[in-house]
Design a protein around this nucleic acid. Structure first.
Length: 415
RNA sequence: GUGGCUGUAGCUCAGUGGCAGAGCCCCGGAUUGUGAUUCCGGUUGUCGCGGGUUCGAUCCCCGUCAGCCACCCCA
């Protein structure tokens, strides 16, 4: 017996319906990004492992699909796009007017255990503004992210974008006398605070000479804690998007490289992982590419958002409609007389030349079978090619009405 | 890396210490220029894999692999 092959753990097959669903998400990402004047770019799927070490530290290697290539190079399947973007932007920064508005849709790989909303291979939408200091760039990205969700069919009842500001916390921590290392430790405590037992949090904060009450008071101060958040809220309100936003200083995002406002999108009521996340990272382009460049961006993966779409009525209906449309055909050519095979072929090509989607049988079959196949293909029309040629019979499959039309007027008759 | 649950037909799943099951799907057929429904017929399984207990294991035990879920982590 032949060995049965399976996908590797955490990897996925996309059968046509899954692929159509994926493309629906991709097309929405692309459409909304274009609406904001963003242009699409792409980088290599394989990069030197050092690129990721530089950004994230040596431990990152545990989470990478990495190997030594035949030229003895230490390489990795990309786990994210930001380092590549930083490299690209720095390398040719003089070629582009600032700010850059770039987006990308690509496949990424992380050597992790597969679970809901997370695999070893996934697609991610990345959207970044580079070379712009203004906090309005952060707000622009948040607006774009909200629009993405709305375009997918979500409403204000389905999700929130939670906004925070790392600088507010840095200010808080330095105000308490912490040094740089202390601030980093402190931010990690805040990041995990929600899912850490309270005694443990008190203990961890105590080690930094900070009380839980002080932290809670600060979180409660909300937008007042950060002028940037205030401007972002005002801007989003002006865009009519205020209902989608809430300030949540508990959002810190674990990564050390964020330098300003940060945000995440969460569903309401389903308790899934964050759907999207991002923030400002003004030091990273310099770190990677040696060119100082302000930057902010966010990413959205395909797995959580697709789960959420399928579990939410409106977006699910939209997705299903897109899937149905992707598989729809306009006509099925029925070859009623085997002698008319050549004529049927010319009819098919004529229709395709007019931009219609057409299927014709590839091997002889009884008429009944052909109509059954036509029905199952979801075709709107059956075009019967037989003894009446060069006229053909045009049958509307749904209402079963039919009429004989001349070849020349066939396309018009199908309009 | 840690823990819990699961593993039987292509899919969804029943089932029993003693011959392996249903529904769906798929394929073929029901007087050869028209489809739903219906009717008839058909294909498929080393019961995830390896070992142990037993006269006998798909069932009980151990291991292993895979999947799902949670933790860790989450760029």
């Amino acid at each position: 017996m032949a060995t049965r092959f399976q996908t590797l753990p955490g990897f996925r097959d996309f059968y046509p319906d899954d692929c159509a669903a994926r493309n629906h998400v991709f097309e929405t990402w692309r459409k909304v990004a274009r609406r904001y004047g963003f242009v699409e770019y792409e980088g290599p799927i394989l990069e030197p492992t050092d690129l990721y070490r530089r950004k994230s530290g040596a431990e990152i290697v545990n989470q990478l699909f990495c190997f030594t290539d035949k030229g003895e190079r230490d390489v990795s399947m990309r786990p994210e796009l930001t380092p590549t973007l930083a490299r690209m932007a720095a390398a040719r920064q003089r070629d582009f007017r600032k700010p850059l508005r770039w987006f990308s849709i690509g496949q990424f790989f992380r050597y992790e255990k597969h679970q809901k909303g997370r695999g070893r291979e996934f697609y991610q939408f990345n959207c970044d503004i580079l070379g712009e200091d203004s906090v309005l760039a952060d707000a622009e990205l948040m607006a774009l992210a909200i629009d993405l969700m709305c375009e997918l069919g979500f409403t204000r009842d389905d999700f929130r974008i939670r906004v925070s500001d790392r600088n507010a916390w840095v200010g808080f921590a330095t105000g308490k006398g912490l040094d740089e290392a202390g601030v980093t430790t402190f931010l990690q405590v805040i990041d995990k605070m929600e899912r850490t037992p309270e005694e443990k949090v008190i203990e961890q904060l105590g080690a930094l000479s900070i009380t839980l009450a002080e932290v809670k008071d600060f979180v409660a101060s909300g937008a007042e804690a950060s002028p940037s958040i205030g401007r972002i809220l005002a801007d989003l309100a002006a865009r009519g998007l205020a209902d989608f936003v809430e300030v949540d200083l508990g959002i810190v995002r674990g990564l050390a490289y964020y330098t300003g406002p940060v945000f995440e999108i969460f569903d309401i009521g389903k308790g899934m992982r964050a759907v999207a996340g991002g923030g400002r990272y003004d030091q990273l382009v310099g770190l990677i590419g040696g060119v100082e460049m302000a930057a902010c961006g966010f990413a959205m993966g395909d797995m959580v958002i697709t789960d959420l779409i399928r579990e939410t009525e409106g977006p699910a209906a939209k997705l299903n409609a897109a899937v149905a449309e992707s598989g729809r055909v306009d006509a099925y050519v029925v070859i009623a007389d085997p002698e008319k095979e050549a004529e049927a072929a010319s009819v098919s090509q004529r229709l395709r030349g007019a931009g219609l989607r057409v299927i014709a049988p590839l091997s002889p079959a009884k008429i009944a079978k052909q109509f059954q196949a036509a029905e199952q293909s979801g075709a709107t029309y059956a075009v019967v090619v037989g003894s009446e040629f060069p006229d053909v019979t045009l049958r509307h499959l749904a209402d079963r009405s039919e009429r004989v039309v001349a070849l020349e007027s066939l396309v018009a008759a199908m309009g």
